[in-house]
Structure formats: C-alpha cells, structure tokens
C-alpha cells in the first residue's frame, strides 16, 4: 500500500488516540446519558416493536447516532484544526494525491465512528441486551454510514474557516437529520407528513438498516436502505473528491 496514504491515516488515528478522552470516552458517556434518560422516561410507555423493550429498541439507534456524529466530528475537526494552526501545509507539501487524502481522512473517521459505536454498544449492554440477528448487516451500515459522514466532515472541514461555522454545520444539518431519523422512535409512529419527509432523510435509512441488523425487523427493506446509503456515499465521495481536486480553500 502507498506509504503516504498509510502514514496520513495512521496520523489521524494517532491523533484520536492522543486525545482519547475527548474523542472516545466523552461521546460514549454522552450516549449512555441519553440512554439513561430516554429509557427511564419511556420504558413503561412505548413499545415500538412487539416484544422488544424500549431500551433495547433504543440501543441500536443510539449506537448508530454516535457512529455517525463521531465520524463527522473526526474529519471535520481534524481538518479545521490543521487549517487554523497552519500545519496542514505538511500534508499539502507532500506528494499525496487528492484521493489518498480523501481515503485517509474518511477511513480514520470510520475507525473513530466504529470504536465509539462499539464502546456505546458495550456500555449499553449493561442496561438491556438487544438481539443481534444479522451482525454483518449492522456492520455494513455502520461502515457505509460513517464513511458518508466522514466524507461530509471533510467537506465541512475544508469549507469552514472558523470553529463556529463548523458548529453551525453540526447544529443545523447533522443534528436535525440525526434526530429526525428515527433514533428514538419508529417513523410509523409519526403523522403522515413527517413520515413522508423522513423518507428524504438519508440518516433514516442508515439507522433503519442498522437496526435491521439487530432485530431483523425494519421500517424499510434493508436492501433498499443499503442502496440509498450506498448511492448517497457515492455521490458524496464524488463531490468531495472533486472539491479536493480543485484545491478549493486548500491550495490558493
């Protein structure tokens, strides 16, 4: 494999590891807090799938939410930090192609997403033990979803010039899309209008497909969700690569 790609990927992973408290531990704690609060409030009142405790239903959604948010956070914050402190020049001066650059940042985002996701899952097992009918489906959606969000993070990190611009990206795009994707409920429990709207939200397909990996039940066929998520990733990757190739906001 290309040494420059491997090194850039390794550097990104090393960065995560050096600040593991912020990048790994803190998001796991956040997810566990969500789990505690929502399951405490809703456990007695809601049964989304027959025979599945609400807490158990909630776990895959929370795991996937953590996977997606952390994948996005990883590439976007690493890039903006490197841009603001100026040390991105070390990468830009090197003979690294735009697709090696893309692959390294996205793969590191996938790794961070999966590690946080696994951490949230393991911590959540203490509260409830959801089934795991099709682990490979779950893994597939986790990988594709984090790659999609990692790629979005690359775009956001390149576009943003200040940390608060990145924060608005996160607060006005990523957060609403995750919350409106059925992390905490099945979209069948929504009014028709919101159900229809949810179908335009790619996050819905990621969460629904991921949940299928656990319960073998989903709102939408996992194959259809897979096609949607894969198509979104392909489009996003194409866009990101074109942006990197153009040198937008990187090579002036």
């Amino acid at each position: 494999m290309k040494t420059s790609f491997v090194t850039l990927f390794y550097k990104e992973v090393l960065r995560v590891q050096k600040v593991a408290f912020q990048t790994l531990l803190s998001p796991i704690l956040t997810a566990v807090l969500y789990l505690l609060i929502f399951s405490h409030v809703l456990e007695q009142h809601v049964e989304v799938y027959p025979g599945v405790r609400y807490t158990a239903f909630l776990i895959p959604g929370l795991v996937m939410m953590s996977v997606l948010q952390n994948a996005f956070a990883n590439s976007s914050s690493s890039l903006i930090q490197s841009k603001i402190t100026g040390n991105l020049v070390f990468v830009l001066l090197a003979p690294i192609s735009y697709w090696e650059f893309f692959a390294a940042y996205v793969l590191a985002a996938v790794v961070r997403g999966l590690v946080v996701g696994a951490g949230v899952y393991l911590a959540a097992l203490y509260f409830a033990q959801p089934a795991m009918d099709h682990p490979l489906w779950a893994l597939l959606f986790a990988i594709l979803g984090s790659a999609l969000l990692g790629s979005m993070g690359v775009v956001a990190g390149i576009w943003a010039e200040k940390f608060d611009q990145l924060a608005s990206f996160q607060n006005f795009i990523i957060m609403p899309l995750t919350f409106l994707s059925g992390v905490f409920y099945s979209i069948h429990s929504l009014p028709a209008f919101w159900q229809d709207l949810s179908r335009f939200n790619p996050f819905f397909y990621m969460i629904d497909g991921f949940r299928y990996g656990f319960f073998g039940v989903s709102d939408i066929s996992p194959w259809f969700s897979l096609a949607v998520v894969a198509a979104c990733f392909a489009a996003m990757a194409g866009f990101t690569l074109a942006l990197l190739r153009s040198g937008y906001k990187l090579r002036f």
């Binding site: 040494t3 420059s4 090194t7 390794y10 550097k11 003979p95």
Partner: peptide
Amino acid sequence: RETLRLQSGYFGLR
C-alpha cells in the same frame, strides 16, 4: 521524533 517520522511517511519513506 513523531513529527519527523510522519513527515517521512508522507514522502513515502518508511
């Protein structure tokens, strides 16, 4: 040392 090793890696030197 890490900085210099990483920079070597970016240039393809293991």
